[in-house]
Every structure is written in structure tokens, then in C-alpha cells.
Amino acid sequence: MSQEQIFDRIKKDVTENDVVLYMKGTKIFPQCGFSALVANILNMLGVDFISVNVLEDDEIRQGIKDYSNWPTIPQLYIKGEFIGGCDIVKEMFESGELQEMLTDKGITLQVAS
């Protein structure tokens, strides 16, 4: 695919789905510690999200880094906006900012009580 086609596909994925996590592996079988951490945070919050396994698609693996001008995986998108990688998502989760942002954007959390 051309870069334009790759960007179109990414744009479609991140705008048609509320929460998208580009990661190594899947949300059930993460294959990298950093990806696992973000997936686990989302699973813990009971957020409904789709994960894109960049290990299965080299074009997306490089394309997503160009799309966001961010050199690493994982990458979290909420309502089409790039939120950050592992460090930022972890920081936001620990401060409660992630939960607040998700709720503000109308995304339901099912935190296990």
C-alpha cells in the first residue's frame, strides 16, 4: 500500500472506533511488556477497545509511527486523537486523568468494584 492508503486506513480505524490500541500482540495475548501494560490498564477499567497487532502488519507497524510522529509501540487513540505511549498512558492512569478523559469523551468504564 502507498503511505496515503496506509494513513487512510489508520484514520478510518481511529475515527470509526472510540478506543484503538496499536500494540505488539493482542489484548488477550500481548507480546511486549509495554503493550501489555496499556492493554491491562484498559482491561482493568473495563474499556471496550480494539487492538491492532502491528506484528502482523509491517506496513501498519511503520505507518502508525509516521502517522503520529511517534517512534514506538504501543500507541493509544481515543476518539481519533493520539493520547500517547506506555509512559504517558501509565502516568495519566495513575493521576486519574485517563479515567476523566474517557468519561468526558462519553466512553463507559466498567471498573470492577
Partner: peptide
């Protein structure tokens, strides 16, 4: 923003 700060580092 945090993203911009980290991008400066990258």
C-alpha cells in the same frame, strides 16, 4: 502537552 514534550525527546 505530554505528547509534545516526549516528541521533543524523541
Amino acid at each position: 502537552s505530554r505528547v509534545q514534550q516526549h516528541q521533543m525527546v524523541y
